[in-house]
Nucleic acid binder design. Structure first.
Lengths: 198, 198
DNA sequence: ACAGCATAAGCAAGCGCTTAGTCACAACAT
DNA sequence: ATGTTGTGACTAAGCGCTTGCTTATGCTGT
């Protein structure tokens, strides 16, 4: 049986490969990236990739899966710890936007490389995406039912809110004029306007 | 000298290749699509592609360029024909959203396959994108200066408005519950809320 | 001594693109 | 009308290269 508690060299190599794959996939897309690109960026030979991962697609899956789980957790915990729909929406969009600006590289893979996953992995990831969407929609519906939000179509408002946050991964640049916190603050305010909080 | 007025067979073949490339690029991405995929979908042999186009990248460029030009024209003409900033914003977001929902296949290539263009083509397309962005930002600034929009940061509001429209290409599905017109109407209203029109 | 990390070399398959040529058809001389 | 020739759409075959991945082997820390 292998010792899973202490494998510092192997774990570091695994992480380096994941980091290299994240940068490469974000920059050139999954199909635009070769296994040689990843190995070289991780400072290894092409074959080393297969010592730690069974395929190129597995790297994509690992990045996508952890990214989706992190986002789902962020959304759930932020909503749970708020007292009312107004504060919950302000907080969740703030965190969601900051998360996507800060981690725009990984978020680009999470949101734009879904088509490259195997059918089984794609289905698993889709389920997590639905859970994220359900959290936001339920929140908007809660606010509308309580009369604090004024929205003609809660489902459409929820999609717009999510859409706004996700698309940050496409346009955000570190060299730009805004910090993730700048974007988060403005977007939280925009979110409240979208749901008609006066 | 060739007769450029009448070449129905050749032009039809060119168009079929462009249509096939549009579907394939939108579905699988530029690097995920092979020249054989495109040729087969157009009902031709792989070599036929090169009778009508010099490379696979040229197909991407043609699709991307015409798509960007169409969007720029749509934005400019819609803004020009409106009487004031409120009506201009309502109209331009309505048209922009409808355009991206209706033509989500082409819009997906326009917005998500920029990295696959050659440096020269990429620069040319970038210039058009900037012009589109400038139109929206100028409109928001005009409304803010006139006191009819209430926005803390017009540049950020402009990015959010554009972002909302572009991201429609990612999530819109024909089989979904909304028509392009449904999305356009809701989004026009959301846009006015974002810029603080009471 | 040995477990396991890492590599050099390379395989089968697939890639974008080219070459050499076929075919249908229009223009024109006879 | 008929034979001749030029033209451009289209293809069968395949070239040179790159792809994801494997195999056989060396190397290192404990």
């Amino acid at each position: 049986m292998t010792d899973s508690a202490e494998r510092p060299r192997a774990d570091a190599a695994r992480a380096r490969l994941l980091d290299a794959a994240t940068s490469a996939f974000a920059e050139k897309g999954f199909h635009g990236t070769t296994t040689r690109d990843i190995a070289e960026a991780a400072g290894m030979s092409p074959a080393a990739l297969y010592v730690h991962h069974k395929s190129k697609e597995e790297l994509l899956y690992l990045i996508s899966h952890s990214g989706h789980q992190d986002t789902l957790r962020l959304v759930r915990e932020t909503i749970e710890s708020a007292a009312d729909p107004v504060n919950a929406l302000r907080a969740v969009i703030h965190e969601f936007a900051a998360h996507h600006a800060q981690g725009h590289t990984r978020a680009r893979i999470v949101n734009y490389e879904l088509a490259a996953l195997t059918p089984a992995h794609s289905a698993e990831i889709s389920a997590i995406r639905h859970r994220i969407q359900d959290e936001i929609r339920a929140l908007v519906e809660r606010g509308a039912a309580a009369g604090v939000f004024e929205v003609p179509d809660p489902a459409m408002a929820a999609i717009a809110l999510l859409s706004l946050g996700i698309d940050i991964a496409r346009w955000y640049r570190e060299e730009g004029r805004w910090t993730p916190e700048d974007v988060a603050e403005r977007y939280a305010e925009i979110a409240l306007r979208i749901v008609g909080v006066r």
